[in-house]
Structures are given as structure tokens and as C-alpha cells.
Nucleic acid binder design. Structure first.
Length: 1140
RNA sequence: GGGCUUGUAGCUCAGGUGGUUAGAGCGCUACACUGAUAAUGUAGAGGUCCGUGGUUCGAGUCCACGCAGGCCCA
């Protein structure tokens, strides 16, 4: 048997079998090695973290990656794909802490950093086995033998090299970020600590609406004009008045509506014009004062008149400059202007946010984006520090409040009493309160009142937390913003909106990359500093060694430091070397000026680890320089859309900053996998799908196919395992397997073998074969384009439409007879060859998506021809579809005319079936003719070409094409709105009515003249669509401009033939039920008294015998051992025997 | 609160540049076909194209404002 036949195919078993075959024959390795010397296609694997178990969404994500790597391999590229593991970071630390029952506080006390990191190292690769297992079972081809691992010394060394290069370019610097800070405890707080219960307490603070005086410039002149005044102010609200001396900008919302309001200051009673968000006016301006008499106002009146001078948008305020509110310290760079920010609301305050870059995270970010400096002073060592020191006191430059605590709670009772005396008051007044008083007297406060709100407190000291600038290391990404934006425009994003929108906006609003992490398990920052700020960045192990050796020579280090250095030196070049903490912390250098240098204790952001993988995976530049150069940048990467600001960004940033290049040319960002109700999968909800169970139950290929064809990769997938995968399995895989089985059954019966050198020439093929080959080549062209364009969903859908609609349901259904009738003639051989080519091409086209099944199909179809193919070095020599070359598109075989003809045949057939159905005339009953009106020569020729097919398909004796000359056609006309619209515009309805009212004569006139005057409108032939109406006297059906009329008169002869066909059907069923072989010859005996049937059978006995492979048909009066057979209300006695 | 994204039949999804009667598959109902049969055909039921305004002779499609879900960020 040339072609194995199957019943009840188990797709999971197919996957197992093919996986085994791949392993035994190193098919993956062959697919890479076999392309040696060919152009390379580079794929970067985003490393998963092996400290968690894989989920079904990983099957989705990795299927996408796999598809394009396999496709490019088919296209002749060499696709190396190195696997990798992400091994550093907080999730691992948290897991270790959970298992040990400790917190971060305990590190260094209950457990040493050394032990802690050892535990992390053990934990991190815990589920590697499960991951490797899934990788195999889901058919994902990636090199797991030599993966990169981010905690390895070589990997870290490459990262250090990159950091050194950034440092050399001045792009790595020490700055600060605004973080929660407890002056009382003298420590920063993590977001975790801030989220502890009881941290937020309701407190009463002084809130101030300050008046910022607008300067008269070109940008603000319109306000001065509108108010006809020099006193224009912007109102901004704060609940932390102590930050007002640090004010550097005012932030407004671009789209927020503001109003300029004329009124009097309630404290100084001076006339003022103030800007406030329209939605907040009611909060500060009582309705009673609206448009009151300004002239009558007396200082101290309860009701203060006010009126709206003008409305304006936030964007009209941008760029307006104002006078510094509390001018203690002036920045070197220009500040004090209005900027726009997306965090401004009108829920409280004035819709204008007082912005102090040193004391608010939003403030800091928006200031940086707008080039607004922070208000700082220099301390005694020359370092820039904010106006509040680390103990929570104003610096001396803030003269009015020098060295005072900014929060009352930081003073103890004695200090408070001392302050009270100094102030000379009965009661201590806080800094906030006195700032309020000061501003009131200076006409700088519009509203001062106590305000209740929740405020975070330090969990250790119970004192208020400040948002405060703390040291951090940064990569100066903002310096390269323009380059990064420009480079991004060269990247092909799928979908495009992720690149232009999500990623593009992120780049537009870029802030410097905060690299610092105060943790333990990660890549250490390779920077050493002396107390004087001398600093060195180490870029390799060799540099580290040189610096160590240099340090040992001097007499600067103490004995302990020297011993630590010695210990590290002894490990260099040995297995014991470890570039992690705590070992690198115990390295001491000596600076050029002879000072001790210690390492900055920070670790770097793990995202730098993964963003460095293009270089570090090859230990570049210390090894593999050539490999790196040949595989950079990547042609293709893919990860979840949630990685936009993660991996996608870090890859892009490092490449752009250090290599003036993109890191990847094409990127597919994938959506989430949700459950069937669109809910996120989570362990808590219990709707998580175990990937191993799913693959085992349904098989890898149906699952992959379902995931890809159901929705675009970038849309979220509602994963309906049961219904969805079952449908794919039955409809697509079932149909394809059936088609293969059909082929195998008859090919085996005829002993058909494919001879790659002796095929029936294309020129001799019939219409059906040429048609499916045309369709096939059109499909190959489309699918090739879809894969090349990273559109796997379109590719999969095109393939399955071809298989079910064209190949199975039309080509095979209509060609069945050719496969089982008679000897192995050229026509039959052509049928086998055509079908085999279609199936083979399917195997190849679908192989990127369904790698196991497609290989199974390919091997079934070609295994018998392998030996000859290997000897002759023909295309089928490959043992796996994944080693083959992509089917070239044979454009000369794409015959669009033929495709159009066939489509007409399908439509006509469908209409005839529909008429038969409505009138309850079985398809087995032959009819004399079908009439098809055709209004143009094209359609006529196209239909003529497929006349025979239509006749056979709908069982009629003739297809008659009726054109104008027949004189029986009634025409009607429909307006073509698309053509009429631009011509007549508003008159359209009128014209359309005229057209619909045209009578037959007018239509004829229009056809003749090709243009006509209708009530003054010139209507051309192309402005209308001419259709035919029903033919009187026939049963008709219409669809999309096509009309079909069926002659349902059944002559005696047709009646007999119909009966004969019914009879043939019954005999075939009998053969089947009796278990006869397909090739068995039979003898038929019939007994019936029904004259009609007797006549019908006699008249068609030859036909009956041919169809049923009967050698004889005997009509008897009575019959023993007969079976009773129902034929349309009549019963016959029938006996069927095998005779040969 | 901001950015991006999705919303079309019970379910999953198609619907270049606006064109008047919005489609497919699954599911449901009925009938048929079949020497491929867990398949297929025909017919039927099933729609506020998320909502409200606007532009237009004409809007599922374009614009504005909302609503709901999702992701990321604050």
C-alpha cells in the first residue's frame, strides 16, 4: 500500500509520532543546518522566567514566533533561534522570601546576602523541565541546548560592557527620583510599605490657593487686553504649602476649560483678574457676587463681586510666564511658566497644579518633559540638594523659615515650645500656617483654609511621609529621544497602532530610564565611587582585574579591604567567580587621587538584562563577534502587547543609544488569552487552562490552528477549548483528512504512484483540474503574501476556505467519478496528480501553523516515492515538510477567467438546487433544461465553458443561454448609486426615482444610445444596472443579478430515468450494507408488479448496470430470498449477489 | 485620570477608498444528497451594526461626545 489509510485519526497521537520522528532524525537541526550559507533570518527570543509554570497563553505567544521562523525556513532562509531564560528580578526574590518566611528587612540579619542569592539561583530554574516539555509538545522550534541565561557571568559581563559604553558617552548618570521618604526614620519607603494598612491617615492640613502673577509677554497679552488690567493672576491650589518656595511651574490640562475672572482679593481687597478652571469657579466664587456692582464694593464687604471676563482652553495658557511666588532661590535655567500635563483634574483645587519638581513624582516627570529645572541649592560639598534637607527642615537659603521643620509633627514638645518663644506667639504656628499668613499680606493668596484629606505616614515612626528626591542611577534616554523616535518609524509594527500609538506616545513622553533597584538578586551596577565623587565604570572582567590589581599596589586600603580584594582576585578565572552581590560589594578600588572607592550598591533594572540579549546572548563583544554582526538587528520578534514599555522598549533604547540602530525590524505584539467568557484567566477564578491537558486531549495542531485562525494575534483571544477546538478539528482537519483518505483509497486500488518526471502535461488537463490548480496557485500567492506580511490569521483562514469550499466541496465532490471509474487512464492519473499536488501544497502551506499534522500528511503522501526521489534528487527527497522549499507560484496557471466561470457554475447550481428544493423535485429526477438569461458576452462565454459541469451537478439535460435576441427577456433597471452620487448629489433621489420608473422601451433606448435625457438629467448606461426579470412560465430564482429558470416539465422518458437513478441509489446502498468490496461485480434480480418501474428499469438497464458494476439485471415475477426496498411509496423485492 | 485597543446574529468572526436588501461558520428548526460521511446541500428563524449628536443626496464605514470590556501607565 502506497498511501496509509486512517480511520478516526487521533491528532494528539499524530503529534507524538511526528515528535518522535523529529527527535530521531534531528529534523529541527537539519532545518537549520540545511540552510547553511543561505541568507539568514534573525529571530530574538524574549526570555521567559522559568520560576513559574507555563500557561496556555505561552502556547499562543510561541505559536506566533514559531510560524514566522518556520515560514522563513521554507522560503530558504537560515533561521537560528537561541532560547533564553530570564533569571533576575523581584518575582524571584519574592518567591524565595515567601518560601523562607522572611521579608527584605531580614536580609543581612536572619539570612546573609550570600545565602539569599544562593536560594534565588536555585529557585530560578526550577520549572525548566516543564518549560522544555511544553516547548516540545507544542512543536515550538527553538534551541534549548544552548540557551542564554541572564545570571551567568558571561551575560553579566556583556551587560557591564554596555553600561560602560553608556557611561563613556555620558549617558549614565546619578540623579534622583521622587520617592516616598520618611525624614523621621531617615529612609525611603517602598510602594509595598506605603500600601500597608493604616498608612494613610486623615489629617487636617493648611491648603492655599496662591495667586501667581502673570508676566506681560506675547503669549499672555490677550489676557491683559481682555481684562484691560495689569493685574492678571493664575490660581493654583496646594495642600503642602511648604513646597511653594520650590515651585518651578504651573501645570494645566490642555483640554480643560478655564475662565478669566475679574474680582477683588479677599485679603487685600485689591482688584485682581484670576484664571481658574470653569468647573471650579463655583467653589471659590459664591453665586451671590456674580456680576454684582464693582463700583459699590467696599473693602471688607462680605459679598465680593465677580464676573467672567473670558473663556479659554488650557492650551491657550501654555507657555505663559509668571513671577516667582516665593523668590528665595532662583534656578539657573529659566523656569516659572505654564505647562500642560495629563494628570490635572478639576475634582478639587483650581484646575491648575502648583508644580515643585523636587517634591512630587508627577511634578518631576512633567517638569523634565518640559525642560523645567528643579529649584535646588548647593550643600557644603557642592552637591545640588532640594530646599528641604533629609531631616525635613528648610535649608538656610529659605531665609524666613531657615532650618525649620516643614511638618509640625516632626517637632517634639520641647522643640515646639522653643519655636513658639522664638515666634513670640501664644501658640506655635506651623510653617504651612505662616506661609499662608505671609502670602495673604503680599497679595499672593486667594484662599487659605484648613483641609481634611488622607495623607501617608511612615509605618515605623507614624510621622508624615514626604515625597522627596532620592539618589538613583539613570540612563539619559531623553538625550537620544529624537533618534529613538526616528528609528521607531522604520520598524514594522503589527498592529501598526501599537507602534505609532502606544509605543510612539511613550517615546514622545520619554523620561530618563531609572536603572536603580535597591535589591539583591540581579546584575550589579559596575560603578565604584569615592567620597569626593570620583567614579569609574567597569566594562569587563579584565578591567575589573586591572583595577583590583592597581588597588592592591597602593597603600590606601586597609587590611580588611585588601584581604577582600585578594579573595576576589583569587577567584578570577575559576568556577568560583560570581559577579553578583555580595562578592562585588567587597571590592575596593583606589581612585586617581588616591581615595578609596566603593561600589554603588544598586542593582540594575532587570529589563536592562532582557534588553541586552542581542549582545549578551552571544557574550558580545568578548566572543562571537561575527555571529553577532550577522544576526543583528533582528528581522522579527514577538511578545505580548504588555511588553511595549518593557522588552520592546529596552531592546529599542539600548540599540538606539549604543548602536544607532533598531534592535528589530518587524514586531508582532500579541493580545491576551482570555477564557471563553472574555474573563482574564486566573488561578483564583479557576478558569485557567492547563496547557499540557489541552494539548494531550485535542492535539497540538488543532489548538494552534484554532488560536491562529480565530482572531488576529494582536486581539485578545477568547479561548473556547471545547467548542472552538472541536469545530476546527471537525471542519478543517476532518475535511482535509477525509480528502486525503479518499485519495489514498483509490490511489491504492489503482496502484497509483507519483512519477515526478512523467506527469500528465498541463496542456492535457481538463477544466476541473486546471481550475483547482488555478485556485491553488492563487492561494499560494495569497498565503505567501500573508505570511510575509505577518498576517497568520489571514493565511490560516485562506487555507481552510480553500480546503473546505474549493478542494473538498467542489473539486473532489464533482470529480469523484473520475477516481473510481475504470482503468488508470491519463485522465484518471491527472486527477490523482492534481489532487496529490493540492494535498501536498496544503501540507506545506499549513506547516508553519500546524507543524505535526502537516508533516504527517506530507509523509503519508510522499513516503512511497521517497526512494526514487532521493535517487533522482527531486523535490520529494526531503523526509519532512519542514525541510522543503516553498511552492513557487506558477502565475501562468492562474486563470482568472476560468475561476470566474466556475464561480458562475457554482452560483447557477446553487440557484437550481434552490428551485428544486422549493418545488420538492429531487436532484435524482433529471429535468430537461435550465434557462439562464445573459446580458453580456462575457457571462455567456463564461457559462458556456462550464455547461457540462452544471448539467451534471444539477441533473439537467441542457443549459440554454438566453440573450437579447431570444426576445423573451424582460429587463428592469436599478440605479447605480455609486456612479450617480458624484454626478447628481442632492438631486439623487429624484434621478433614482426616474430610473426606477423606466419602461422596457426606455431601457432599450438607453442601451442603444448609451446615454439618455430623462427630465433634463443625462443618464448614462454606466449609471444603471440592468437586470432581468423572472421568465414567465418557468420557475425562477435570482441572486446578485443572476437569474435562473428551470423547466420542470417531466416527460415520460425523464420519469423513467429518474426512477432508474433512484434504483441505482438503492442498489449502491445495498452493496454498501452488504459489505461488498468496491471492485466486486454483481448480479441484480428484481421483482415488482409496478408497470411503471418495470418499464423504467428495462429502458435504462445498461445505465443501471454500469453504475452499479452489475453484470446482469433480471426482472422476475417473483423472487426468493429477496430484500424489500422502498422506492417513493412503492416497494420492490431485490436480490444482489456477488458474481466475480 | 491619561494613552492605546475592542464593541456587527445566541457564540466566534468577515465587512479596501461612504452607495441604499449587512455577510460567513458554529449552534437551532425542517427537508434532502452521498461508494469521502464526526462530512455536504437547500430552506427557515435569528441584527437598535454599543449609545447620542453631527457631516452627507446617502453612514456599520467619516467626525465629536459618551457607555462598556481589555492592556499599559499614573
Amino acid at each position: 500500500m502506497n498511501f496509509p489509510e486512517y480511520k478516526n485519526l487521533d491528532y494528539a497521537a499524530v503529534a507524538d509520532e511526528i515528535l518522535q520522528f523529529w527527535k530521531e532524525n534531528r529534523v529541527f537541526e537539519q532545518s537549520v543546518e540545511g540552510r547553511e550559507g543561505k541568507p539568514s533570518f534573525t529571530f530574538f527570543e524574549g526570555p521567559p522566567s522559568a520560576n513559574g509554570t507555563p500557561g496556555i497563553h505561552h502556547v499562543m505567544a510561541r505559536t506566533i514566533k514559531d510560524i514566522f521562523c518556520r515560514y522563513q525556513t521554507l522560503k530558504g532562509k537560515q533561521v537560528k533561534r537561541k532560547g533564553g531564560w530570564d533569571t533576575h528580578g523581584l518575582p524571584i526574590e519574592l518567591q524565595v522570601e515567601k518560601e523562607l518566611g522572611i521579608t527584605k528587612e531580614d536580609i543581612g540579619t536572619k539570612i546573609s546576602v550570600e545565602e539569599y542569592n544562593q536560594r534565588c539561583r536555585e529557585t530560578v530554574m526550577r520549572f525548566t523541565d516543564q518549560w522544555n516539555d511544553l516547548t516540545e509538545k507544542m512543536g515550538y522550534w527553538v534551541d534549548l541546548e544552548n540557551p542564554y541565561v541572564t545570571y551567568h557571568n558571561e551575560y553579566i559581563e556583556s551587560i557591564w560592557h554596555l553600561l560602560k559604553k553608556l557611561h563613556e558617552k555620558g549617558l549614565l548618570y546619578k540623579g534622583y527620583t521622587i520617592q516616598p521618604y520618611s525624614p523621621a526614620a531617615g529612609t525611603g519607603l517602598s510602594s509595598h510599605e506605603l500600601n500597608m494598612p493604616g498608612t494613610y491617615k486623615e489629617v487636617k492640613d493648611v491648603s492655599i490657593v496662591a495667586q501667581f502673577k502673570v508676566k506681560l509677554t506675547g503669549k499672555s497679552a490677550y489676557l491683559f487686553d481682555a481684562a484691560d488690567s495689569d493685574d492678571i493672576y493664575i490660581l493654583a491650589w496646594t495642600t503642602t504649602p511648604w513646597t511653594l518656595p520650590s515651585n518651578a511651574a504651573l501645570t494645566v490640562g490642555k483640554n480643560i476649560d478655564y475662565q478669566l475672572i475679574k474680582t477683588f482679593n479677599p485679603y487685600t481687597h485689591l482688584p485682581v483678574n484670576v484664571v481658574c478652571a470653569r468647573d471650579r469657579v463655583a467653589a471659590y466664587f459664591p453665586e451671590k457676587g456674580k456680576d454684582a456692582d464693582f463700583g459699590a464694593y467696599q473693602a471688607g464687604d462680605k459679598i465680593i463681586p465677580w464676573s467672567v471676563v473670558m473663556d479659554l482652553k488650557g492650551e491657550h495658557l501654555e507657555g505663559i510666564e509668571y513671577e516667582q511666588l516665593m523668590p528665595y532661590v532662583q534656578p539657573e535655567i529659566k523656569a516659572f511658566r505654564v505647562i500642560a500635563g495629563d494628570f490635572v483634574t478639576t475634582e478639587d483645587g483650581t484646575g491648575v497644579v502648583h508644580t515643585a519638581p523636587t517634591f512630587g513624582a508627577d511634578d518631576f516627570r512633567v517638569a523634565q518633559q518640559n525642560g523645567i529645572p528643579a529649584i535646588m541649592v548647593q550643600d557644603e560639598t557642592g552637591k545640588d540638594v532640594p530646599l528641604v534637607d533629609k531631616r525635613g527642615r528648610f535649608v538656610k537659603e529659605v531665609t524666613d523659615f531657615a532650618l525649620e521643620y516643614v511638618k509640625e509633627q516632626y517637632l517634639n514638645d520641647e522643640e515646639k515650645e522653643a519655636e513658639r518663644e522664638k515666634q513670640g506667639r501664644d501658640k506655635y504656628l506651623s510653617v504651612d500656617e505662616r506661609i499662608g499668613i505671609l502670602l495673604k499680606t503680599e497679595n499672593k493668596a486667594f484662599n487659605v483654609q484648613k483641609f481634611d484629606h488622607p495623607y501617608p505616614h511612615c509605618w515605623r515612626t507614624d510621622k508624615p511621609v514626604l515625597y522627596y528626591p532620592l539618589d538613583s542611577w539613570f540612563i539619559r534616554t531623553t538625550a537620544k529621544k529624537a533618534e529613538l523616535v526616528a528609528l521607531n518609524k522604520t520598524i514594522n509594527w503589527k498592529p501598526e497602532s501599537t507602534g505609532t500609538g502606544r509605543f510612539g506616545n511613550w517615546l514622545e513622553n520619554l523620561v530618563d530610564w531609572n536603572l536603580s533597584r535597591s535589591r539583591y538578586w540581579g546584575t550589579p551596577l559596575p560603578i565604584w565611587r569615592s567620597e569626593d565623587g570620583e567614579e569609574v565604570c567597569i566594562g569587563s572582567i579584565a578591567e575589573l582585574k586591572a583595577a583590583l590589581e592597581h588597588a592592591q599596589k597602593d597603600n590606601v586600603l586597609n587590611d580588611e579591604q585588601r584581604a577582600a580584594n585578594e579573595s576576589f582576585l583569587s577567584k578570577l578565572g575559576t568556577e568560583a567567580l560570581d559577579l553578583h552581590r555580595p562578592y562585588v560589594d567587597e571590592i575596593y578600588f583606589v581612585s586617581a587621587s588616591g581615595k578609596v572607592m566603593t561600589r554603588e550598591t544598586d542593582l540594575i533594572d532587570v529589563w536592562f538584562d532582557s534588553g541586552a540579549m542581542p549582545y549578551a546572548q552571544w557574550h558580545y563583544p568578548f566572543e562571537n563577534k561575527d555571529i553577532f554582526q550577522n544576526s543583528y538587528p533582528a528581522d522579527f520578534i514577538s511578545e505580548g502587547v504588555d511588553q511595549t514599555r518593557g522588552w520592546f522598549f529596552t531592546l529599542h533604547a539600548i540599540a538606539g543609544m549604543l548602536f544607532d540602530s533598531v534592535a528589530f525590524k518587524n514586531v508582532v505584539s500579541t493580545g491576551l488569552v482570555l477564557d471563553k467568557d472574555g474573563e482574564k484567566m486566573s488561578k483564583r477564578k479557576g478558569n485557567v487552562i492547563n496547557p499540557f491537558d489541552a494539548l494531550g486531549k485535542y492535539g497540538t495542531d488543532p489548538i494552534r490552528w484554532y488560536m491562529i485562525t480565530n482572531s488576529n494575534p494582536w486581539d485578545n483571544l477568547r479561548f473556547n477549548l471545547e467548542a472552538g477546538v472541536t469545530e476546527v478539528r471537525n471542519k478543517f482537519f476532518g475535511t482535509l483528512t477525509n480528502t486525503y483518505n479518499f485519495f489514498a483509497l483509490y490511489a491504492n486500488l489503482d496502484g497509483y504512484e507519483l512519477n515526478e518526471f512523467d506527469r500528465v502535461p498541463y496542456e492535457q488537463l481538463g477544466e476541473m483540474d486546471r481550475w483547482i490548480l488555478s485556485k491553488l496557485n492563487s492561494l499560494v500567492r495569497d498565503v505567501d503574501g500573508y505570511y510575509a506580511d505577518y498576517e497568520p490569521t489571514k493565511a490560516g483562514r485562506a487555507i481552510q476556505d480553500f480546503v473546505s469550499d474549493h478542494l473538498s466541496n467542489w473539486y473532489v465532490r464533482l470529480s469523484r467519478r473520475r477516481f473510481w471509474k475504470g482503468e488508470l487512464t491519463d485522465d484518471k492519473r491527472a486527477a490523482f496528480e492534481t489532487l496529490q499536488e493540492c494535498l501536498l501544497t496544503m501540507a506545506q502551506l499549513m506547516s508553519p501553523i500546524a507543524p505535526f499534522y502537516s508533516d504527517w500528511l506530507y509523509r503519508n503522501l510522499t513516503e512511497g516515492a521517497r526512494e526514487k526521489a532521493v535517487a533522482g534528487n527531486t523535490p520529494l527527497r526531503f523526509t519532512s515538510v519542514h525541510l522543503t522549499d516553498f511552492h513557487p507560484v506558477e502565475t501562468s496557471r492562474i486563470d482568472l477567467e476560468l475561476e470566474a466561470s466556475m464561480e458562475l457554475a457554482q452560483r447557477v447550481s446553487s440557484l437550481v438546487h434552490s428551485i428544486r428544493k422549493v418545488n420538492k423535485i429531487k436532484v435524482r429526477q433529471p429535468l430537461s433544461r435550465v434557462l439562464v438569461p445573459v446580458l453580456n458576452e462575457f457571462t455567456k462565454q463564461r457559462l458556456a465553458r462550464v455547461e457540462e459541469l452544471i448539467k451534471a451537478e444539477v441533473n439537467v439535460k441542457a443549459v440554454e443561454l438566453l440573450d437579447d435576441t431570444s426576445g423573451v427577456l424582460n429587463k428592469k433597471v436599478k440605479p447605480n448609486f455609486k456612479a450617480l452620487g458624484p454626478k447628481f448629489g442632492p438631486k439623487m433621489k429624484e434621478v433614482a426615482a426616474l430610473i426606477q420608473g423606466m419602461d422596457t422601451a426606455t431601457i432599450a433606448a438607453l442601451e442603444k444610445a448609451s446615454a439618455l435625457e430623462l427630465n433634463g438629467f443625462t443618464v448614462e448606461l454606466s449609471d444603471v444596472e440592468i437586470l432581468t426579470e423572472d421568465l414567465p412560465g418557468y420557475l425562477t430564482a435570482q441572486e446578485g443579478g443572476l437569474t435562473v429558470a428551470l423547466d420542470v416539465h417531466i416527460s415520460e422518458e425523464l420519469k423513467y430515468e429518474g426512477i432508474a437513478r433512484e434504483f441505482v441509489n438503492r442498489i449502491q446502498n445495498l452493496r454498501k450494507d452488504s459489505g461488498f468490496e468496491v471492485a466486486d461485480k454483481i448480479a441484480i434480480s428484481v421483482s415488482t408488479s409496478e408497470e411503471l418501474i418495470r418499464t423504467a428499469l428495462q429502458a435504462n438497464s445498461e445505465y443501471i448496470c454500469t453504475e452499479t458494476q452489475a453484470l446482469s439485471l433480471n426482472l422476475l415475477d417473483s423472487l426468493a430470498d429477496a430484500v424489500s426496498v422502498e422506492m417513493d411509496e412503492v416497494a420492490l423485492d431485490v436480490k444482489v449477489e456477488v458474481v466475480a
